[in-house]
Amino acid sequence: MVQNKLLRMDNMGIVVESLDKTISFFEEIGLKLEGRAMVEGEWAGRITGLGDQSVEIAMLVTPDGHSRLELSQFIRPAVVSDHRTAEVNALGYLRAMFTVEDIDEMVIRLKEKHGAQLVGEVVQYQNFYRLCYLRAADGLLIGLAQQLIV
């Protein structure tokens, strides 16, 4: 019997408070909005286990076209918990990491235009990467990496 193989990771999903603000934040990093849609009804609830639901989603894609981020803003049912202020060692979803050309410029831009805050500081890992974690104004945690050796 031939074993079924994994083809790719399709996307990573994040539930957000404001779709418009979060789309703007990720567009600032360099992701492109592919589309936006309402997903409603009992059929969708059969996938999520939430029953009759209404959620607006947005799909963003990285510049290389290989990775996608699905943002979801739930209309119904209401959000049940908020993990945005969890420490970076909390179990579950932690953050998405994005590689950028100039980490210092990106940090300044995200702070000035979107109210992002550094969680710690920008650090260098050997001669390979400069890295940091940021919290967006709405608390969403992301990582930035700048590759030093290509």
Rank of each mutant, 00 (worst) to 15 (best):
E105L: 10
A86S: 09
E42K: 09
I149R: 11
V122R: 00
L33M: 15
K111A: 08
M106T: 13
L110K: 02
F74Y: 15
N11W: 08
L50P: 03
L94N: 14
L33T: 13
G35F: 10
F98P: 01
F128T: 13
S24H: 06
R109S: 09
A90I: 05
L7M: 12
K21A: 09
V16E: 08
M12E: 03
K111T: 13
A136K: 00
V80A: 13
S67E: 01
A58H: 07
A58W: 05
L131C: 07
T62F: 01
E105Q: 08
Q53N: 09
N127Q: 15
L131V: 12
M59T: 05
E17F: 02
A78M: 06
H114C: 11
E121T: 14
A86P: 02
G13M: 08
G45T: 06
A96L: 11
L69N: 04
Q73D: 06
I57Y: 06
R135C: 02
V88F: 15
V61P: 00
L31P: 00
F128K: 09
L33S: 04
V122T: 12
R36V: 08
T62I: 05
K32C: 07
G65Y: 10
D82L: 05
V80E: 15
T99K: 02
L69C: 02
E42C: 03
P77E: 05
V39I: 13
S81Y: 15
Q53L: 10
D52F: 01
I47H: 13
L118S: 03
M38C: 02
T22C: 04
V15N: 12
F26N: 00
Q73M: 13
A145T: 11
I75F: 13
